[in-house]
Simulated assay, not measured.
Amino acid sequence: MEIYGFDKEVGTHISKFNSDFIISRIIKTTMPAHIGCMHLEASGIIGYHQAVVPQLVVIVNGEGWVRGEGDTNIFVKKGDVVFWKKGEWHETTTDMGLTAIVIESEELNPSSLMTLKVNN
């Protein structure tokens, strides 16, 4: 499991076309990707299972805990991105609730655009 950040502080300022914003790039793929939004209510859980394909979970609201194949839970919050490799066992839980965008594709290389925060 790897954890990346997409906070404003790691983004790039864009001024092209008279723009004024910061973009925090997450992923670029050339192969098909499935993108969805997961809504976990208070005490929600995505049960312990193997990733069918490489998977990014982009936390856009709330906070919770993730774990990989060990028993160690790692705290995650809005602004964190969790990456699991194909076949990696993992689980996500939350006490207060959590909303995340999930990106699944055979071709995901998050380290090409984001800075690693935690590698477990």
Results as ranks from 00 to 15, higher is better:
Glu63Thr: 08
Gly79Cys: 04
Asn73Met: 06
Phe83Trp: 04
Ala33Tyr: 11
Arg67Met: 11
Lys86His: 07
Gln55Tyr: 06
Gly79Lys: 03
Glu88Ala: 13
His90Gln: 12
Arg67Ile: 05
Val60Gly: 06
Gly44Gln: 10
Glu41Asn: 12
Ala33Arg: 05
Ala42Thr: 13
Ile46Cys: 05
Gln50Asp: 12
Ile3Glu: 05
Met31Arg: 11
Thr12Ala: 11
Gly79Ser: 05
Pro32Tyr: 08
Trp65Ala: 03
Ala51Ile: 03
Ile46Gly: 02
Ala51Pro: 02
Tyr48Leu: 14
Thr99Tyr: 05
Leu98Arg: 03
Trp65Cys: 03
Thr92Pro: 00
Asn73Glu: 13
Asn61Pro: 01
Lys28Asn: 12
Arg67Thr: 10
Asp7Glu: 14
Glu2Ile: 02
Ser43His: 12
Val82Tyr: 06
Gly87Trp: 08
Thr30Asp: 15
Val82Gln: 00
Ile3Tyr: 00
Ile14Asn: 11
Thr92Trp: 02
Trp89Leu: 13
Lys28Thr: 15
Asn61Trp: 06
Trp89Gly: 00
Ile74Asp: 02
Ile23Leu: 13
Glu88Phe: 04
Ile26Gln: 05
Asp71Ser: 13
His39Val: 12
Phe17Thr: 08
Ile74Arg: 10
Phe17Met: 09
Asp7Ser: 14
Ser15Glu: 14
Ile101Thr: 14
Thr12Cys: 05
Thr30Phe: 07
Gly87Ile: 13
Gly5Phe: 01
Gly64Glu: 08
Asp80Asn: 15
Val57Arg: 06
Ile23Glu: 15
Ile59Arg: 02
Asp7Leu: 10
Tyr48Pro: 00
Asn73Tyr: 13
Ser43Gly: 08
Tyr48Cys: 05
Ser43Arg: 11
Cys37Ala: 07
Leu98Pro: 03
Lys78Tyr: 00
Phe83Pro: 01
Pro54Ile: 02
Asp95Thr: 15
Arg25Leu: 04
Lys77Met: 07
Gly87Gln: 10
Ser15Pro: 01
Phe6Cys: 11
Phe75His: 15
Thr94Asn: 06
Gly68Glu: 07
